[in-house]
Simulated assay, not measured.
Amino acid sequence: MPDAETRAVYQVLYQSRDEPLAMPAIRERVNALTGKANLQMDRRLRSLRTHFDVPAQRVPGKSNLFVYPLLGWNPDADKRTARKSIPASVRALVHQTYGNRCAACGRTPKDDQVKLVIDHMVPLDLDGTNEPDNLQLLCEEDNHDKQALFADHQENAAALRKSLSLPEVHLRIGELLKAMPGENVPKELIVLVAREENHGDPTKRMRELRSLGWVIRNSQRKEGRRVLSFYRLEHWEPWPPGGPQAAVASLERARRRKKRTRESAANSSQE
């Protein structure tokens, strides 16, 4: 049975379903209904999302503004209801692991006045779990960005489900590209699948995949003031027997040995 505050959030979302509201307006209306301020809105939304489809949708032309439409029942409700909530001890462990810092942008509540939330690297509706190794800290802004990105790519759910839970970053990126053949895959989606702290460097990962014989084309498109980057897979090779990470490390060691040999030869010729 949901608590009174969660029921109030549902009431506001239901009443505004034809014209979805942004979080400040939702919070204001919920506070008016309950007479309480500083409600944990992220927790209330997570509770509602067990049963209802309430995505975060970016407002066109507003990079950091999202609205929350109530779209109906969550088709995955039965499976989500069966999942246990995250224990307090696990939440404390995640905060300790990430040093109370956003895994995406590195900001902290103390230094940057951001609010941090527990995020599932692999979302529950893409077969993620509540295990500690699937949890990270994100600030509300990056968490909303992630939700909006997943919402924008719902048609690629099968590709995301296949790639997100793989154990190596090269496998995750490569299998995503393979699952979207001939498509221009946005950099943001690759960063999301890479699951590397502080956004990682997809340019470096693409270079490493190319060293394994993959052909990946990069393109850019200007959208307003933003320049969007895309990657398209044109050819791929089977994964090395020991895995791509070991193969890339071996190639890098060979490159360094070759460089040292050249430098040594150059120094000898100057003596």
Rank of each mutant, 00 (worst) to 15 (best):
D3R: 06
T6N: 07
A8S: 05
Q11V: 07
Q11F: 03
Y14T: 14
Q15S: 13
M23D: 02
E28G: 00
V30D: 02
G35E: 09
K36I: 10
A37Q: 02
R44M: 08
R44C: 08
L48E: 09
P69H: 03
L71H: 14
W73M: 11
W73H: 11
N74R: 07
R80C: 10
R80L: 15
L93Q: 12
V94D: 01
Q96Y: 09
C102P: 04
A103N: 12
A104R: 14
R107G: 00
T108K: 13
T108P: 00
V117M: 01
D119G: 02
L124F: 08
D127H: 04
G128D: 07
E131M: 09
E131F: 06
P132L: 11
L138E: 00
H144V: 01
A151E: 14
H153W: 09
Q154G: 15
L160C: 09
R161T: 13
K162F: 07
S165K: 06
L166R: 10
E168I: 06
H170M: 05
R172F: 10
G174F: 03
K178V: 07
P181H: 14
V193K: 03
R195L: 04
E197F: 05
E197N: 10
G200A: 06
D201V: 00
D201E: 00
R205V: 14
S211D: 09
W214I: 03
S219E: 05
R221L: 09
L233V: 04
P241W: 11
G243H: 13
A265H: 06
A266T: 14
N267M: 15
E271L: 15
